[in-house]
């Protein structure tokens, strides 16, 4: 987004389109995050007004759900599964490799803004553990070597 007013009018348009749905807040938050990549703090009053909620209520919902983010992500979000099935196939080793390779911990973004790393608790790919997702692309049986290859390909495509 180039400036705040464009951002706010985008949020306003999303809120107006969805506000009459029963239980509209999550669909609106998804709409904002899908469009902007995150839910800017400035958008909270706009959403609250559209739904006749307090800003605290909207903020409370955003902060409750792990998926919603209040800061801009890197170009690609890497979601690495930490759950039991992946652990049984060496995900802790993979996790250490991923963090070292990217030089960041969970919930952080690389300095060049290329990747954000998020933990995920199951991608439903448990027969092909360990699993991770880059953007919307899912990968199974990920070894450290395969991870390096995927990252190199993603960077080359960028």
């Amino acid at each position: 987004m180039t400036d705040t007013s464009t951002m706010l009018s985008t949020v306003q348009a999303i809120a107006t389109a969805l506000k009459d749905k029963p239980g509209a807040l999550l669909p609106i938050l998804h709409g904002v995050q899908d469009t902007l990549g995150y839910i800017p703090a400035d958008s909270v009053p706009v959403i609250a007004k559209a739904l006749n909620l307090s800003r605290a209520e909207v903020h409370g919902v955003i902060s409750f759900y792990h998926y919603f983010r209040e800061t801009p992500p890197g170009k690609q979000i890497i979601q690495l599964c930490r759950a039991e099935s992946c652990q049984s196939m060496g995900s802790k080793h993979l996790e250490a490799h991923v963090k070292a390779k990217l030089g960041i911990d969970f919930h952080e973004t690389t300095v060049d803004g290329a990747f954000s790393l998020e933990p995920v608790y199951c991608l439903g790919n448990c027969a092909c553990s360990p699993a991770l997702q880059i953007g919307t692309d899912i990968y199974g049986r990920v070894s450290p070597e395969l991870f390096d290859e995927l990252i190199a390909n993603t960077e080359a495509a960028a």
């Binding site: 999550l26 669909p27 998804h30 792990h66 998926y67 919603f68």
Partner: peptide, 23 residues
């Protein structure tokens, strides 16, 4: 309707709160 990464929303009453647009 899409959830947003909260495991507890698989519990039926939490799920309904979420569907209603709440925590």
């Amino acid at each position: 309707r899409l959830g947003a990464g909260a495991y507890v929303c698989g519990e039926e009453t939490s799920l309904m709160e979420s569907l209603e647009g709440k925590r």
